[in-house]
Amino acid sequence: MKIVAIDTSTKQLSVALSDGTAILAEASYVTSLNHATKLMPLLERLMQEANWLPKELTRIVVADGPGSYTGLRIGATTAKTLAYTLGIELVAVSTLELMAASTGRTGRVVAIQDARRGTGFVGMYENGERVGDEQHTTVADFVATLPTDTLMTGDTEKFVEALQPFEIVAPAFRTPRAGVLALLGATRVPVDVHAFEPRYLRLAEAEAKWIEAQRHD
Rank of each mutant, 00 (worst) to 15 (best):
K2S: 10
A5E: 01
L13W: 01
S14L: 01
S14M: 02
A25E: 11
Y29H: 15
T31N: 03
T31D: 06
T31W: 04
H35G: 06
A36W: 08
L39P: 04
M40Q: 09
M40G: 04
L42P: 01
L42I: 04
L43H: 03
L43G: 05
R45I: 06
L46Y: 03
L46F: 02
M47G: 07
Q48D: 15
A50M: 12
N51C: 13
W52M: 04
T58Q: 14
R59C: 06
I60G: 00
V61P: 02
V62K: 00
V62C: 09
V62A: 08
A63V: 00
A76S: 13
T77A: 15
T78A: 15
L82C: 11
A83Y: 02
L86N: 02
S94G: 01
T95Q: 00
T95V: 03
A101H: 05
S102N: 10
G104Y: 08
R105Q: 14
G107P: 04
R108M: 13
G118I: 08
F121R: 00
M124G: 10
M124R: 13
Y125I: 05
E126K: 14
N127H: 12
N127F: 09
R130K: 14
R130C: 04
R130G: 01
G132I: 05
E134P: 02
H136P: 01
V139E: 03
V139K: 05
V139G: 03
F142W: 10
F142H: 11
F142N: 07
A144M: 07
L146H: 09
L146R: 07
T148Y: 04
D149S: 12
L151T: 13
T156R: 01
T156M: 02
T156C: 12
E157F: 12
K158S: 14
F159P: 04
E161Q: 14
V169A: 13
V169L: 09
A170V: 12
P171N: 09
A172K: 14
A172S: 13
T175F: 05
P176A: 10
R177A: 12
R177W: 02
L181S: 05
T187R: 13
R188Q: 15
P190T: 11
P190W: 00
V191R: 08
D192M: 09
H194A: 15
A195N: 13
P198W: 03
L203T: 07
L203V: 09
K209R: 15
A213M: 08
R215I: 01
